[in-house]
């Protein structure tokens, strides 16, 4: 099942971000500032979701953009959208911090929050397009069964492998793998318009 969304704005935004990443790769400090302005809320929200602690999320946020500054030249537009590349780096840094034990006291147990989480107060810079994407992805997540959502979120936000998830949920490993794969395939189908596949 596919949901409907206007993807023209998303595509234009991706192009803008590609240009910024290219300028950052060329050592343009103001481009990094612009890239930060355009993406910091998204990246910070992701890191905060993984770590659940503002202090460490702030440190990781700085680390992520410093890494982007150093590694912008390694970005290859043929291998994915810039925001996907940035999200991969941000998640990776946040999960590293989580695994370092720094966040043990804050480690999340319940992760069924994506589909129905309330929106934060809108800031002036939050664009209508961002809200639209947020709504669209939430609707896509709501198409998954609660079990499928749970295994995907445990892997993505808590950094648990499928065997760790199976142990945590007391479910057979095969069941966890199947739920994850089916959930991801359903998500991909629903999110196709955002991926330029619709």
């Amino acid at each position: 099942m596919q949901l409907a969304i206007d993807t023209a704005e998303a595509s234009e935004r991706d192009q803008d971000l590609v240009s910024l990443v290219e300028s950052v790769a060329a050592g343009d400090q103001s481009a990094l500032a612009a890239l930060y302005d355009a993406t910091n809320r998204f990246i910070y929200s992701l890191i905060l979701r993984v770590l659940g602690d503002m202090g460490s999320a702030e440190e990781v946020l700085i680390d992520v953009y410093t890494q982007l500054w150093r590694q912008a030249a390694s970005y290859d537009a043929n291998r994915g959208a810039p925001l996907a590349w940035m999200a991969t780096i941000a998640r990776s840094r946040a999960i590293d911090r989580l695994r370092s034990g720094w966040q043990d006291q804050h480690r999340k147990e319940s992760l069924d929050v994506l589909g129905d989480a309330p929106a934060n107060a809108a800031s002036p810079e939050e664009s209508a397009a961002a809200s639209e994407r947020q709504r669209f992805v939430r609707e896509a997540l709501n198409l998954l069964t609660p079990e499928q959502r749970r295994v995907i979120e445990l892997a993505y936000y808590s950094g648990l492998s499928h065997s760790e998830i199976a142990e945590k949920l007391n479910q057979p490993l095969g069941t966890v793998k199947t739920r994850t794969r089916l959930g991801m395939m359903k998500l991909r189908e629903a999110l196709a318009p955002l991926l330029g596949e619709g």
Binding site: S45, R49, A84, A87, L114, A117, S123, Q134, L191
Partner: peptide, 16 residues
């Protein structure tokens, strides 16, 4: 990877 990276788009936006 892009499918995975869309997951956090559903999060309530927080401002650092």
């Amino acid at each position: 990877r892009e499918v995975a990276a869309l997951l956090p788009q559903a999060l309530p936006l927080q401002t650092p």
